[in-house]
Nucleic acid binder design. Structure first.
Lengths: 152, 152
DNA sequence: TATATTTGCATCGTGAACGATATAAACAAA
DNA sequence: TTTGTTTATATCGTTCACGATGCAAATATA
C-alpha cells in the first residue's frame, strides 16, 4: 500500500490543477473590478485578436466545448460586452462580436498581463525560464489533445 | 491595440488552465469507472496517505476552501467511500475516515498514476524533464500561495 | 467569570466545465 | 427529390470552485 505513485506530491496533475487555480485567483481582483471572470477574459482575448467569430471558433481556440462557451457568451451578452447574430452564409452559426464596451475593455485591462505576470516571478520562475515552461505545457496540451482527437 | 501581451499564445495562465483541464479529462474514464471525480480522487490520495483527518487538514493539503471540500466529502460519504464523525477533542471538527470501500479503491485504482503518466509523455515531456517542470510549478504555487497569505 | 475574538465547518448563490441529449440547418447519398 | 448524415449551437443535470455569510465551539481578553 501507500505506493509512492499515489503520493500527492508526485502528481503532475495536482500541480497543474493547483497552479491553474491560484493563478486564476490572481486575476480575480483585476477582472472582477470590471465585472469579468477569467473564462470571460479568455473570450475577450480571442475576440480582441479577431472580432466577429462563430461560437465554434471561439470554443476551438480555447479548447472548450460549445456547451461551456454558449452560456458564458450569453452572460457576456447580458452585460453588454458583446452581441450575437445569426450567420448570413450559414444560419446555424452564431457570430459573436464585440460591442464598443467590449472593445474599450482592452484598454481598461491593458495592465493586467504585466501585473499578473510579475506576480508569479520568483526564484524558480524567471523571464528566462518561462519559455521552457511554455514548451513543456504545450507538449502536454498537444499530447493530450491528440489522444482526444483519436477517441472522439 | 492588439498588444502582444494580450495574445492568447503568450499567456501562462491559459496554458496551465488548458493543461490542467485536459489532464483531468485523461483521468475521467479511469475514475468514472469507479464512480469518482478527479477532486474526489484527490481527497482519496490525501486519506490514503493518512486516514482520519479533519476537513480543514484535507482542504489545506489540497489548497482548497472548506466550502469546496465539505460538499465534496458529503457526496463521497453518500457513496459509502468515507464517513464523518465529530471530533472528540474539538467538537467543531469533522473527522473524515475511509470506509473499507474507500480503502479498497486504492488497490482498484493502482494502475491509474502510471496510465495517466504515460499518456502525457512526448518529445517535450520526458521522465527526465518532469522534475524541472515540478520545480517551476512548485515555484508558481509557492509564490501565489505566499501572496495569498499576505492578503487574507 | 463574563465578554470578545478566533476557528472549524456549513449553507447559499453564481459561474464555470462537461457528459448526454436535442434541434435545426447544411450537406451527401440514394 | 427524398432520405440520411454531419455540423453548429443550445438545453439539461451534476459537480466543482469560491465569495459571502452564518453558527457554534474553542480560545483569548477584560
Amino acid at each position: 500500500m501507500a505506493a509512492e505513485e499515489f503520493f500527492l506530491d508526485n502528481q503532475l496533475c495536482f500541480r497543474l490543477y493547483t497552479a491553474s487555480r491560484l493563478l486564476t485567483q490572481a486575476y480575480h481582483p483585476l477582472l472582477s473590478a470590471k465585472g469579468l471572470t477569467y473564462p470571460q477574459y479568455l473570450v475577450l482575448l480571442v475576440l480582441w485578436e479577431k472580432d466577429a467569430q462563430p461560437v465554434n471558433d471561439i470554443a476551438k481556440r480555447l479548447m472548450l466545448e460549445t456547451n461551456t462557451v454558449t452560456p458564458l457568451i450569453k452572460r457576456m451578452e447580458a452585460e453588454g460586452i458583446l452581441n450575437r447574430r445569426k450567420g448570413e452564409k450559414d444560419a446555424r452559426q452564431m457570430i459573436v462580436s464585440l460591442t464598443p464596451k467590449g472593445k474599450r475593455l482592452q484598454n481598461e485591462l491593458r495592465d493586467v498581463p504585466a501585473t499578473v505576470g510579475s506576480a508569479v516571478l520568483c526564484k524558480e520562475v524567471t523571464p528566462e525560464s518561462v519559455p521552457g515552461l511554455f514548451v513543456a505545457l504545450d507538449g502536454i496540451i498537444g499530447q493530450l489533445s491528440k489522444s482526444k482527437l483519436a477517441n472522439p
